[in-house]
Design a protein around this nucleic acid. Structure first.
Lengths: 110, 110
DNA sequence: GAAGCATATACCGGTCATCGGTATATGCGC
DNA sequence: GCGCATATACCGATGACCGGTATATGCTTC
C-alpha cells in the first residue's frame, strides 16, 4: 500500500467523509505536505471500493451539490491496522539502526 | 519514498552491503514478506546513487565473483531519518483513530 | 453582474517505481 | 553434468500516482 492510499484510509478511519473532505483531512494530517490530486483520490476511492476496504456510507445534497460519503468497512479497518503495524515495525528497525550508527562514534565521513 | 526503497536504505544503514546481501537482509527484516526482485534492487541502487543517498563503498572479488558494496551517505542517513519520522507519525495517527473507533462502541457493522 | 474562488466529482494522458522474467557467470554438491 | 546458491544486470509490463482539465454551483468582491 502506498502513502496516498494509506492516508485516505486513515482519513476515513475517523469518520465517514466525502471526497473533498478526505483531501482536506489528509492535508491537515500531513501538515500540508500531501495535497491529494483529484485524479489520485477518485481513482483510489474506486479501487478501495472494489477491493471492499471502503463503501459508500450515504449521499447528501448540500447547496444542490452532491456529497458522497465513504466509510471504512470491517475489512478496511483490518487492512489499515495491519498496515499501521507494518509501518511501526519498519520505523522501529530503521530507528534502531540509525541510533546504533550515531553511537558507533560520529564516524565515517560519507 | 516507496517501501522497497525505504527497506534498501534501512539495510544499508546497518553496514555496507552488496546487492545480494541487501536482498537477504530485507527478506529477514520483513520476516520473508518482502523478496526484492533483482530488477527492483539494481534499478533502485542506481537511482539512489544518482540521488546521492548511497555510494559505492568498495568492491571485492570473492570466488572470482564481483561484490560491490554500497553504503549510506550523510544525505542518505538524513533522508532515512526523515522518512522514518514520517512513518512513525503516520502510524501514530492511524493508531489513535483505530483505537478511538474501537472505544466508540463495538459499533457499526461495516 | 461578472470575475474569481472554494467546493465537488470525474476523466485522461503521462510518468516512474516496482514486478516478473530472463541473461550471464561462477563455484559447490551430488 | 545437472541443479542450486550467489551475483550483477537488462527489459517489458503493470499500476498507482500526478498534473491538468472539464463540469457545475454558490459565495464574495468589485
Amino acid at each position: 500500500m502506498r502513502e496516498p492510499t494509506f492516508l485516505i484510509l486513515t482519513a476515513l478511519a475517523e469518520e465517514p467523509r466525502h471526497g473533498y473532505a478526505v483531501i482536506e483531512d489528509v492535508s491537515a494530517m500531513t501538515g500540508g505536505r500531501v495535497r491529494l490530486r483529484a485524479g489520485t483520490l477518485y481513482a483510489a476511492l474506486d479501487r478501495l471500493r472494489s477491493d471492499g476496504l471502503i463503501d459508500v456510507d450515504r449521499e447528501e445534497v448540500v447547496q444542490s451539490r452532491l456529497r458522497r460519503y465513504y466509510r471504512l468497512t470491517a475489512a478496511g479497518e483490518r487492512s489499515l491496522a495491519a498496515e499501521t503495524a507494518r509501518l511501526r515495525e519498519q520505523a522501529a528497525i530503521a530507528d534502531r539502526r540509525l541510533r546504533a550508527r550515531r553511537t558507533d562514534l560520529g564516524g565515517a565521513p560519507a
